[in-house]
């Protein structure tokens, strides 16, 4: 039982980080029908901005994190939207899929060639200790991850449903034409969505890198999990992506202990296929009806 509790808790901690990536993914999809195949690389990259800030520019950790956040907002938010997605929007989703795949490869290779191909140690915000929680050992990093990502999700939810800008963003996602008629600046709302995605990716990056180390190839598994989490939870819901992320984190951890380490990666995939078969709109999603 203690082992089970421990596995579930650390699964929730990792899952909450997956949820951040999945929420960003869902937001982009809603706001601009962008399926971002580079989402995993978006989470991989900000950690390297921090490392550059610390080791090349000699900043302290906190300053380097702010530097990385700003750089992420500019590169993964503004530049990504203006120069990659916007020119392709009139051509449908396929070119965007291809372009984001290429962008992911580009980001991965750039880090590998210009920074390092080796996994880099990454500083944590808290001292690494384990706390006793009803007999289960929980690391401080796990607790930090869970707390920070939950705070971010709550803040985001409040922003989206509690402020005028947030509600305008929701309106833009639901029906851009009507939103525009009602005086919403659609372009700006879409830009906000891209900025939020960049910020979520940066936070996810800061939280996950102390555990997995910063490595150029980290993006691939994270991106895949973000996809699965978004679909399992419900592609058109923030809550869905959150539940999906947490669920995948826990299932993944349980599978590693109780199923087999070899097929660990297969379990979330099987979950994905089952969900698509049984409940294609996702656990919390609303059915959109057939597209055709």
């Amino acid at each position: 039982m203690t082992e089970f509790l421990q596995v579930v808790l650390s699964g929730l901690a990792t899952g909450s980080i997956y949820a951040l990536a999945a929420i960003g993914f869902t937001l982009l999809w809603q706001a601009s029908q962008t399926i971002n195949f580079a989402q995993g690389e978006f989470v991989m990259l900000p950690a390297f901005f921090v490392l550059i800030g610390m080791h090349v520019l000699g900043m302290p950790l906190i300053a380097a994190m702010i530097f990385a956040l700003i750089l992420s907002l500019i590169l993964l938010g503004v530049i990504f939207k203006k120069f990659v997605i916007e020119p392709m929007l009139p051509h449908g989703t396929l070119p965007i899929v291809m372009a984001t795949i290429a962008l992911g490869i580009l980001m991965k290779e750039t880090v590998k060639e210009f920074y390092s191909a080796e996994a880099q140690p990454y500083p944590s915000l808290v001292a690494d200790r384990t706390l006793d929680f009803f007999g289960a050992a929980v690391s401080t990093q796990d607790i930090l991850n869970l707390v920070v990502s939950m705070l971010v999700v709550v803040a985001l939810q409040f922003f989206l449903s509690g402020t005028r800008t947030g509600r305008s963003m929701q309106a833009t996602a639901q029906n851009p034409q009507v939103a525009e008629i009602l005086g919403v600046n659609i372009k700006r709302m879409v830009l906000y969505t891209f900025l939020i995605n960049a910020a979520l990716a940066a936070v996810a990056s800061f939280l996950i890198s102390p555990i997995y180390l910063a490595k150029f190839s980290n993006g691939e598994p994270i991106g895949l999990v973000a996809f699965i989490a978004a679909i399992v939870g419900g592609f058109n819901q923030i809550r869905g992506a959150l539940v999906g992320g947490l669920l995948i984190g826990v299932v993944d951890n349980l599978a590693a202990i109780y199923v087999s380490a070899q097929y660990r990666a297969a379990v979330p995939l099987i979950l994905l296929i089952v969900i698509i078969l049984v409940r294609p709109q996702g656990l919390l999603g609303k059915a959109e009806g057939r597209a055709v």
């Binding site: 291809m98 290429a102 490869i105 580009l106 290779e109």
Partner: peptide, 8 residues
Amino acid sequence: MIYAAMVL
């Protein structure tokens, strides 16, 4: 890198 940039 060059290849991905070209596709992009």
